[in-house]
Design a protein around this nucleic acid. Structure first.
Length: 419
RNA sequence: GGAGAGGUGGCCGAGUGGUCGAAGGCGGCUCCCUGCUAAGGAGUUGAGCGGGUUUUCCCCGCUCCGAGGGUUCGAAUCCCUCCCUCUCCGCCA
């Protein structure tokens, strides 16, 4: 959520920045300014009335104590009149505030000034590469062929149980999935100073509003019928919201959390994309990294966050590159995002395996996460999140990059103790 | 799921219709005292929003005692609904 005071004070700046995502946001800013004006004038009117009413009510109490019943009754009549007006104005204000809220909640974050301007994925900027894609002396197979031949990935039965984009894994694949989770958690907890967390995977709607998935992206989520709960699309949601509504003391910051959770996404709008294999599933495992930090530290923390996620691929010895997302490809809540893309031999290109973002105070404002500084002043924190990493995609990257001519694949050395 | 108890500020905890944004304590901050430390004394200390001034400081007002409704001139306090926590029972991995 953007700061309405910033929008009010500097609408041209906000419009200019948001237009780099998409030109439509200019109109939304104009609209919200109108609604804000309406809202504030109603508040002013209403507060004056309430102040007067409160004065009169106190008078009534006073008059009763002095035994002046008749006078008190007269004042009561006056209050009745005020109350009628207040009731009407309150209804009006309520509907204006609803409009105001829903507008403010659907405006995306302002891209950081360093974010490259661009339209879509094509305009993302490569920052660095690590490792050399392996030269195969045979035609490398896609992971689904390797997996089916070995009998460890079962797409048919996944579909039987749950439909498309669900998979069953057996033996080495199931085991590797579990090994990767433990390996990633250990690296982040033991080497990078993260606190390991385990969270619910069913969360309330206000929690998803806090991190920005709701109200705008309801169609991407699974909702539990008969209960007002949603399946977690990423542990970013539960980890970031752990401190929703709290005022943290400065000494607690920075906070680093890591968690493994399954993630559930409906993938509405991605029909026909990546239909084969386990790249894009409705249910997948992810180890997530979340940082809650002081504003002045957040960009430095973002750089570290990316490096911490990269470390996993380095230890697994799989080639990857880091790209910076352009304004047009930036997610709703993010001010700046780096994606880590892993090398996929069968596709002869890099594919996203991690997304690391600084949302600045965008989520903190929604979730009301603040801290008190040494002078007792209260500020919003900055929140960051990143995949560290997507486990299923890591698994398929291992299968493909470590595949052998005989149709089997090796396990990276660093995982051997985990298998 | 059933019965009972309860949800108040950073924390603990009092408050059953007006003088309550809320006693008292702890913690925090400021000052005093004291070679240092500890102890002691005095004061101060909630958030959000709107407005005035508009960098800061400050001033005025509104709202907030789990959430939402209701009664009343007036609600932390009375009534209703919901959520959550605890105890006991039931069920259960």
């Amino acid at each position: 959520m953007l700061d309405i005071k910033l929008i009010r004070k500097n609408p041209e700046f906000v419009k200019e920045r948001l237009s780099k995502r998409d030109p439509v946001y200019g109109k939304m800013i104009d609209e919200i300014l109108d609604v804000d004006e309406e809202r504030r004038s109603l508040i002013r009117e209403l507060e004056d009335l309430k102040a007067e009413k409160n004065r009169l009510s106190k008078q009534i109490g006073q008059l009763f104590r002095e035994g002046k019943k008749e006078e008190a009754e007269k004042v009561k009549e006056q209050v009745h009149g005020k109350n009628k007006k207040i009731e009407i104005l309150e209804k009006e204000l309520k509907s204006v505030e609803e409009r105001f809220e829903s507008l403010l909640l659907t405006i995306p974050n302002i891209p950081h000034e360093t974010v490259p301007v661009g339209k879509d994925e094509e305009d993302n900027v490569e920052i660095r590469k690590w490792g050399e894609p392996r030269q195969f002396d045979f035609e490398p197979l896609p992971h689904w062929e390797i997996g089916e031949k070995l009998g460890i990935l079962d797409f048919e039965r996944g579909a039987k149980l749950s439909g498309s984009r669900f998979t069953v894994m057996y033996r080495e694949a199931a085991r590797l999935e579990r090994a990767l989770i433990n390996f990633m958690l250990d690296v982040h907890a033991k080497e990078h100073g993260y606190t390991e967390v385990w969270t619910p995977v069913l969360v309330k709607p206000e929690i998803l509003t806090g991190t920005g998935q709701l109200p705008k992206f309801e169609e991407d989520l699974y909702r539990v019928c008969d209960e007002d709960l949603y399946l977690l699309p990423t542990a970013e949601v539960s980890l970031t919201n752990l401190h929703a509504g709290e005022i943290l003391s400065e000494e607690k910051l920075p906070i680093y959390y890591t968690a493994y959770t399954p993630c559930f996404r409906r993938e509405a709008g991605s029909h026909g994309k990546d239909v084969r294999g386990i790249l894009r599933q409705h249910q997948f495992d992810k180890v997530e990294l979340v940082k809650i930090v002081k504003p002045e530290e957040s960009y430095n923390e973002l750089e570290n966050l990316v490096k911490e996620a990269e470390k996993i691929l380095q230890l697994l010895e799989i080639p990857y590159r880091v790209v910076e997302l352009c304004t047009g490809d930036l997610g709703f809540s993010a001010a700046k995002t780096y994606d880590i893309e892993v090398w996929i031999p069968s596709q002869n290109r890099y594919r996203e395996i991690s997304s690391c973002s600084n949302t600045e105070d965008f989520q903190a404002r929604r979730a009301k996460i603040r801290y008190r500084d040494k002078d007792g002043k209260i500020h919003f924190v900055h929140t960051l999140n990143g995949s560290g990493l997507a486990v299923g995609r890591t698994l398929l990257a291992i299968m493909e990059n470590y595949q052998k001519a005989d149709g089997s694949f090796d396990i990276p050395d660093v995982l051997k103790d985990y298998m």
